[in-house]
Amino acid sequence: MTDAATTTAPTAVPHGVPSASGSAATVELRDLRRTFGTTVALDGLDLSVRPGELLALLGPSGCGKTTALRMLAGFEHPDAGQILVDGEDVTGVPAHRRDAGMVFQSYSLFPHLNALDNVAFGLRMRKVRPEQRRARAAELLELVGLPDKGDRYPHQLSGGQQQRIALARALALRPRVLLLDEPLSALDAKVRLTLREEIRRLQQELGITTLFVTHDQEEALSMADRVAVMRAGRLEQCAAPAELYGRPATAFVAEFVGTMNRLAGRLVDGRTAVEALGRRLPVDGEAPEGPEVDVLIRPEAVRLAADPEGTARVTAAAFLGAVTRLTVQLPDGTDIKADLPGHDAAALAPGARLTVSLPDRAVLVAARAA
Results as ranks from 00 to 15, higher is better:
357 S>P: 07
293 V>D: 04
182 E>F: 08
219 E>R: 04
274 V>P: 02
3 D>P: 11
73 A>P: 12
47 L>H: 06
140 L>H: 01
22 G>W: 04
288 P>V: 01
182 E>T: 07
266 R>A: 01
261 N>A: 05
360 D>S: 14
157 L>W: 00
120 A>C: 05
315 T>I: 15
77 H>I: 10
62 G>W: 09
176 R>W: 00
285 G>P: 03
234 R>S: 14
35 T>P: 03
213 V>C: 00
349 A>Q: 14
6 T>M: 12
68 A>Y: 05
368 R>T: 12
120 A>R: 00
1 M>C: 06
293 V>N: 03
120 A>D: 09
294 D>Y: 02
362 A>S: 15
123 L>Y: 00
217 Q>V: 01
232 A>N: 14
200 R>N: 05
168 A>G: 10
46 D>W: 10
260 M>F: 05
302 V>C: 03
222 S>V: 02
138 A>I: 02
72 L>Y: 10
128 V>P: 01
166 A>M: 07
31 D>S: 14
127 K>Q: 14
63 C>K: 00
25 A>K: 00
198 E>T: 00
336 I>E: 09
306 A>I: 04
126 R>N: 02
154 P>S: 01
302 V>L: 14
131 E>K: 09
240 A>P: 03
84 L>V: 10
100 A>R: 08
343 H>V: 13
75 F>I: 11
254 A>Q: 04
152 R>Y: 07
4 A>G: 15
346 A>Y: 10
216 D>P: 06
181 D>W: 06
263 L>G: 08
54 L>T: 15
310 G>I: 12
275 E>M: 11
88 E>H: 14
331 P>T: 13
261 N>M: 01
47 L>A: 03
130 P>K: 13
218 E>N: 11
86 D>S: 12
153 Y>M: 11
357 S>A: 15
71 M>S: 08
348 L>D: 04
137 A>T: 07
57 L>V: 12
26 T>I: 01
3 D>S: 11
332 D>P: 06
56 A>K: 06
178 L>T: 12
258 G>N: 06
116 L>M: 07
54 L>Q: 13
14 P>E: 14
360 D>W: 08
277 L>K: 13
136 R>K: 04
334 T>Q: 11
210 T>D: 10
347 A>T: 13
284 D>Y: 07
194 T>H: 14
86 D>Q: 13
